[in-house]
Each structure stands twice: as C-alpha cells, then as structure tokens.
Design a protein around this nucleic acid. Structure first.
Lengths: 158, 158
DNA sequence: TTTACTGCAAATTATTTGCACGGTT
DNA sequence: AACCGTGCAAATAATTTGCAGTAAA
C-alpha cells in the first residue's frame, strides 16, 4: 500500500485479479511487470516484442518467456475490464494500452503524425475544464481521453 | 440556396477536390452530400448503409446508387488528406468520420459505453484550455480530439 | 484433482488494393 | 480519346477464438 505509485500498481493489479478469481500465470505476471515499468502507452505488438526473450535477465527473476499474442490481447482485455489498464486510441493503426494509476495524476497524449512518436503530457487547467464540463453534459462521465496531433520537434526541424 | 456553414461545406469540398485535380464521380458526390447533412460522425458501415438505395428513387433528385465499400474508404481517405474530413476514434470497433467545417465551432464527442451512442458537444472553456496548453507542449499541434466516455441518460435510467 | 492459463493456429472483421469497365473532361 | 473514378472480389493486418496441453490451487 505504501511505496510509490508505480510500484503499487502491479501489486494492486495482482490483488484485484486474485479477487476476481484469477490465478497467477506466467504470461500475466510478465505483462504486469512490463506495463508497470512503462511511462506511456504501448501497442500489443510492442508488448509482444518486449516480452520476447532477448539477451537475458532484467529485473530480479529475469526468466523471460515468450508470451503469445493471444495472451497479450486476452490479458489486456481482462485488465481493461477491471479498469487496471486503459486503451489509448492515437489514430495510428494499432490501439495502445497503458496502466491506470490510482495515485498518479493521469496523463494524455501527444502524437506526431509524421514519425508516429507518442508522448505523455498532463495539464491541470485542462483537467479542470474537463471536470467542469463533465457535469454539464448529458452523460455520466467515467473516463476521458485527449489526444493532440501535430509534428514533434525532431520532425519540425528535419 | 442558403449560405449557412453546413451548406458551404460540400461546395468547398467540391472546389478543393477540383483544385486537387479530381473529377466528379457519382460516389463521391453522394458521399459529400451525405456527410454534409450529418451533425455527427459516422462509421464507414453507416455511410455505406445510408447510401444504399432504399426503395426506389425518392423524389426526383434522389437518383440513388449503390456505393461500394471500397469507394467509401477511398473517398474518405482523400477527404481526410485534404482536411475536409476528420477521423474520430471512439474506442468502438470502427473508426468514425465527419466533415470538418471552417466556420462552425468544431465539436468533440460523448460516447456511451453501454449502448454505443455518440453525441457531439462543444465547450469554450475546454477549447481555451487546449489552446493555451498547445503552446507549452513539445509538439506543433495541428489537431486535437477529445472523447468523454460514460453512460448516457437512457442507459443510466434503465 | 480441478479448473484456470497459455500457446498455436485457424477464424473474424475492418480496411486496403488490383483490376477492368464506365463516366467525366 | 485520355484517364480518373468506381464496383467487385481478393488481399491485408489487427484482434479474437477454439482447442489441447501445462500449471496453479
């Protein structure tokens, strides 16, 4: 419970999963560990690649295994339904996923339409505006997603 | 012929297309006409269905034709590249498309995660916040998209 | 033992593309 | 006549699902 927000996520996720009656499979554990360490959203493809055994041991156990694409999607779906993971639609071909923290201020995304890089950002004024308008709208708002498109600095320079 | 913003769109689109060296095909005309009359974003499927000939020609001008799915996507893509149409990612299975008006205040979207209904909304405070933060971010922002998820009034009542 | 978890491969489904014909200029 | 626009059907590519073996509890 203590510890910092990001470390807490994998733990909380594990507890939530257990409470929902899930066991502790290797693929799920590897995926939780990976997502917990990410600062921003990943595609299923990136996740699969990251979980593919390259070199070895990173982290304590370091016993990397191949995790099938099917498991990646299945687990991501479970996590999304439990609100532990959030989908991020960047307008690129593939959907992205990232962990949902209880403690951290959530962030939104900047997408460079030229090179495809995705960066997180957060803004208090924006959140305030969202919160205010959420109460004036004909919808019981549970989530919101904001994506800014444009050209990143590298692409502008080039 | 009124001169309101929505009527102007199809006209402007037509001019822009002509300037880009396009001819006037029937499918494209039908699609422009349809999009021009919409208040909110449609999926390719909805567009295809809407362009499917219902009963026989309704009224004299209604010379309905079938527009193939391939054309719908192709035309939507052209229009998007010319910035006449904008993609809207609602987190539902299919992407949505809507016209981009020069005059109208652009809007954003409310999505009911239960029944799937999509509604437009706009908010000056939100736009202001976006504009302000766009200048403080490491991206030359060209577009932004905001989607609020939740439960619509009908679903909350049910 | 019981039942969930996982990998593999086949199945789905939205979107794209190749090709030949018909329409626009 | 020249060539773009369109429909059709096949091709892609991301995501899902059926099945059988493996591993938690």
């Amino acid at each position: 419970m203590s510890t910092d927000a990001s470390t807490g996520w994998a733990e909380r996720a594990q507890e939530t999963l257990a409470a929902a009656g899930h066991r502790r499979g290797g693929a799920r554990r590897a995926l939780l560990e990976l997502l917990d360490g990410q600062e921003c959203a990943l595609t299923a493809q990136e996740i699969e690649d990251a979980l593919r055994p390259r070199g070895s041991a990173r982290g304590q156990g370091g016993r990397r295994r191949v995790v099938s694409r099917a498991s990646v999607y299945r687990i991501l779906d479970e996590l999304e339904q439990l609100r532990l993971v959030q989908r991020v639609e960047t307008g690129q071909a593939m959907v992205r996923y990232e962990r949902v923290s209880e403690h951290d201020e959530h962030h939104h995304h900047l997408v460079c339409d030229e090179c495809g890089v995705v960066m997180p950002f957060s803004d208090a004024g924006l959140e305030r505006a969202i919160k205010t308008l959420s109460e004036r709208v004909p919808l019981a708002v549970s989530e919101h997603e904001i994506v800014l498109h444009g050209s990143c600095q590298d692409c502008c320079a080039a």
